[in-house]
Design a binder for these strands. Structure first.
Lengths: 117, 117
DNA sequence: CGGTATCCAAACCGATACTG
DNA sequence: CAGTATCGGTTTGGATACCG
């Protein structure tokens, strides 16, 4: 697989985008992220965060206190990535109507038994 | 799921990016794409192309000749999308060394039983 | 040539239970 | 609070065989 694919992968993964978007606004604690994003399991959030940390996109700041407190912050690389991905997501959102129209046309075309133009 | 996710999904899917990149250069026939991309099964290529066509990113031009000849071309929307995604992929490629370094540091950190800073 | 249909293995992901 | 471990359902995707 092309090397960049490995990065694009988590950058565009289901939860990766949402984590990046949340952190683009400000740092978050683990449960804050979980509540903020909504619908993500602890497992997936932890996994996503680990991958992002591993690749240098987020910084994990674990404070040795009780109860534990861990803050996640974007690194410089992570901020750049988040901005890129966020821009793409925004562009995509603007195209939603056009895509919806294309889908409708496509479905109608397929539904039609034959003929017509 | 957020609506834009559905579009981002195929735009950033394993083969979607590669198809868009290939078509960004020029139109391709089905088997041309298959050879060009390499490693993609007929099934996945067909599926990818159908999704992209359905959403209005590529135009499918089937000529009623024997043997069959089908050309795939980017639509305006598809070209925009391809450029965006391609730009992101290029940016990603430039960051590969930085990410590799981050990974190495991360792995070394994990390998270390304790101490040091 | 340009697909579709079927089968099967692997990966993904959520729910749950448990730990430091 | 911030995770890890395990299990099982769902989805994904490749190989193969076949059709127009």
């Amino acid at each position: 697989m092309c090397p960049s694919r490995l990065i694009l992968e988590h950058v565009t993964s289901r939860w990766g985008v949402l984590v990046l978007a949340a952190l683009l606004e400000r740092s978050h604690r683990f449960s804050e992220l979980r509540r903020r994003i909504g619908g993500v399991s602890e497992k997936m959030l932890a996994q996503t965060l680990q991958t992002l940390e591993r690749d240098g996109f987020v910084h994990r700041d674990a404070k040795p206190v009780i109860p534990p407190r861990v803050d996640y912050t974007l690194t410089g690389l992570g901020r750049e990535a988040a901005e890129q991905v966020w821009a793409l997501a925004r562009w995509t959102e603007r195209q939603v109507p056009e895509v919806a129209a294309a889908r409708a046309a496509y479905d109608e075309e397929k539904a039609r038994p034959a003929a017509t133009a």
